[in-house]
Design a protein around this nucleic acid. Structure first.
Lengths: 143, 143
DNA sequence: TTTATATCAGACCTTTTTGTCTTAATATAC
DNA sequence: GTATATTAAGACAAAAAGGTCTGATATAAA
C-alpha cells in the first residue's frame, strides 16, 4: 500500500487542525478530540504527548486541562508536524529505494521525482496552521 | 516514517528496471537479481512470483530458467508495477486521512494536494520501462 | 484538604509488513 | 531417463506499526 504519511501522522495533522479552530489559549481535552475526530483514545493520547514533548503543543493536567497549540498558529507549518511524527527522510530518500541514489548517481526517475518532492516539501513548509484554520472555516468544511 | 512506496514495491521497481536492461527475451535468475540488487533472496522470489501472477513478468523453471518482461517494455509503465504491488489507493485517499474528504467536502489542503497527486500519477502513467532503461544506460547510472 | 478530572508513562496486545525456510514442481541438459 | 538448476507455494519467524490498558501524577475546583 502506497502511503504518504503514517496513520499517526494523519491523526496528528487532524488533531492540530482541530486545535487550530479553537479560541487561542483554550485547552481541549483528549476526550473532545477523539469524539470529534473518531480516533482511538489512548492512541491519540500518545500522539499528543509526543507533540507536547516536541514543543508543538502545551498540555495541562487536571480538571479543565487539555492541549493547546504551543506557538502562534502562523508559526507552525505542516512540515513541523510531519517532521515531528514521521521525520523528514522522504525529502532525500530515493523513490525506488536505491541506497546510493543521488544527483551524481541517479536512479532512472531521480530528476522527475526530485521536482515533485520539492513541490511537496515547499507546500508543507509554506502552509501554516492559520491558513489551514481559515480554510476550515469555509462553509463546505467537514468539521 | 513518510513513505511513498512500500519496500516490496521499491524492490519490484528495482527488479523490473534490471530486467529492462537485459536483452529482449533473456531470462534472468533470482540469484543474479539478488546479487546485483542486494535484495533478500526469498523475499524477492515472492515479489517476482506476484508480478508473474499479475502478468507483468514471465517465468521459466529449470536450468537456464528465470524471469523476463512479459510485454514489450514500452507497454509497461511504472504505474502498472506500483498498482500491482501497492494498489492505487494513493490516487484518491485524503492526505490527512479524513475518511469523507472529497471535492465537496475537502480537507484543508485538499486542492493543493490533489494537484501534486495528479502530477505524480501522470508521471507514473507516462513513464514506461523503455524510457527507464534508456535513462539507465547513461554513463552516470548506478547499475 | 479532599476529590474529581485530566495528562503522563510505560507495559502490553494485535495486525501488517518484511523476511526466512523447506519442500514440491518443472524444465533443461547431459 | 536422470541429475540438476531453477521457480512455485506456503508455512513460519521477526520486526514495525497500530492500538489498548492500567496505574501514577498533577492540578483545579469544591
Amino acid at each position: 500500500m502506497s502511503i504518504i504519511f503514517s496513520r499517526q501522522c494523519e491523526y496528528a495533522l487532524q488533531a492540530v487542525s482541530y486545535l487550530a479552530l479553537q479560541p487561542a489559549g483554550k485547552k481541549t481535552s483528549i476526550r473532545e478530540l477523539t469524539k470529534k475526530l473518531k480516533i482511538p483514545y489512548h492512541f491519540l493520547a500518545k500522539i499528543l504527548q509526543d507533540l507536547t514533548y516536541k514543543k508543538l503543543l502545551v498540555s495541562q493536567k487536571g480538571p479543565s486541562g487539555g492541549f493547546a497549540l504551543a506557538q502562534s498558529p502562523d508559526q507552525i507549518t505542516l512540515f513541523h508536524i510531519v517532521e515531528a511524527i514521521d521525520g523528514s527522510d522522504f525529502a532525500h530518500k530515493c523513490v525506488m529505494g536505491f541506497p546510493e541514489c543521488s544527483g551524481k548517481n541517479p536512479c532512472s526517475i531521480h530528476h522527475q521525482w526530485a521536482k515533485m518532492r520539492d513541490e511537496i516539501y515547499s507546500m508543507l513548509v509554506t502552509e501554516n496552521i492559520t491558513e489551514m484554520a481559515r480554510e476550515m472555516k469555509k462553509p463546505e468544511y467537514r468539521l
